[in-house]
Amino acid sequence: MRGLLGSLLVWLALPVLTAQADEQLLGYWYLEEGAPGFTIDDVHIGALYADGTILNLSSDGKEVSSYTSAEYSVEGDEITFIYPRGSDEEPERHPYRYELIDSDTLLYTDEAGDYENPEDAKTYYRRLPDNAHLTLALLGLAENGQLEEAELEVDSDFGERSVLVTTEDPFAQFILFSDRRQAFRGQINRNGVPVVSTVSRHLAAFRLGTAYPDEAFDEMIMIMQESIASAQKAAD
């Protein structure tokens, strides 16, 4: 899984692509519903990778969960989402016409469906902003198979949002504090090992439980930092 992430970065960097063609499609897209502007409170994110895989991240304001449900392929201005079913069944295929309205807005139109109001056939996705550090961190953990559970709290003690993250290792829990208004800085060590770390200027991680292996926490911090940094790089 980690290999996949590594190669993803290479994919993004190199212009050489497979038949998936449109590299502008690659990256993190969120479904814009309700008020404009991104928050993690109630959102669906689809991550489109160069190898045709998709990762989903959904939040209902209480829990953030990640799952893979489909793959995609592109031909011309048509994108097809392929949902695998049982091993002896043909996968479901859902084609849409896509259009990049600008580099940050993606429109899917369901031309096969029968809609009374043609607007209902349209779904708009927006590119995840590169300052959505909390979401980028969670996406990084999910890409590395580390996001087991994530409980979201709005208006937490240490910022706008906090998320209690349970990783693959059940002893390995930490809280992420997110604040896009002001910068975090510094670190608290316990016996020389970080227990509270600045992940990025908008994100701090607070390790829970002393049974949590030191290296495991360091590794999670690194995964999150890489994810945030690569989004930054892609935006620059």
Binding site: A183, F184, N189, R190
Partner: peptide, 19 residues
């Protein structure tokens, strides 16, 4: 924690959060 040695500080927008 008498068994541990703490060090460091974390700030948020320049204000101390943990120390």
């Amino acid at each position: 924690d008498k068994a541990a040695v703490y060090e460091g500080e974390m700030t948020q927008g320049g204000d101390v959060l943990l120390t």
